[in-house]
């Protein structure tokens, strides 16, 4: 079920960081995992993902390294300390936002605004 784009864009970096807080991943893996976890709600296009990852790397939220898996060299991303801090802040912000929305419209789950 596709969701309105603007709803995702701001928090995509938060979602990616959340994934990376569990383990290091490469780009394709992130898209796949995100899709699975969100029951196909979040279908992130690779064309959006990579520029986002690169800008997060430049901001110092992520670090990248290469690792060979099954004969294929992949670029893995890992979260930095700064990334951890950023995630914490974003998560808090998001919870406040969701709480506020809930209060206004009463008991509606995220993603169906």
């Amino acid at each position: 079920m596709p969701v309105e784009k603007s709803l995702i864009s701001g928090s995509t970096s938060m979602l990616l960081l959340k994934l990376l807080s569990e383990k290091d991943m490469y780009g394709y893996e992130m898209i796949e995992t995100l899709e699975k976890r969100s029951n196909q709600v979040f279908h992130l296009k690779a064309g959006t993902l990579y520029p986002l990852l690169h800008s997060m790397e430049i901001k110092g939220l992520l670090n990248a390294y290469e690792k060979e898996v099954n004969g294929k060299i992949r670029k893995y991303y890992t979260m930095t300390k700064e990334g951890k801090k950023y995630l914490k802040g974003k998560q808090k912000e998001w919870e406040e936002y969701v709480g506020a929305v809930r209060k206004v419209i009463g008991g509606v789950s995220i993603g169906r605004v």
Binding site: Y26, Y28, A46, Y50, H54, I73, R74, K75
Partner: peptide, 11 residues
Amino acid sequence: IEEEMKSHLED
């Protein structure tokens, strides 16, 4: 960038 994209497309 080229390598990362190519690897993604292949996956």
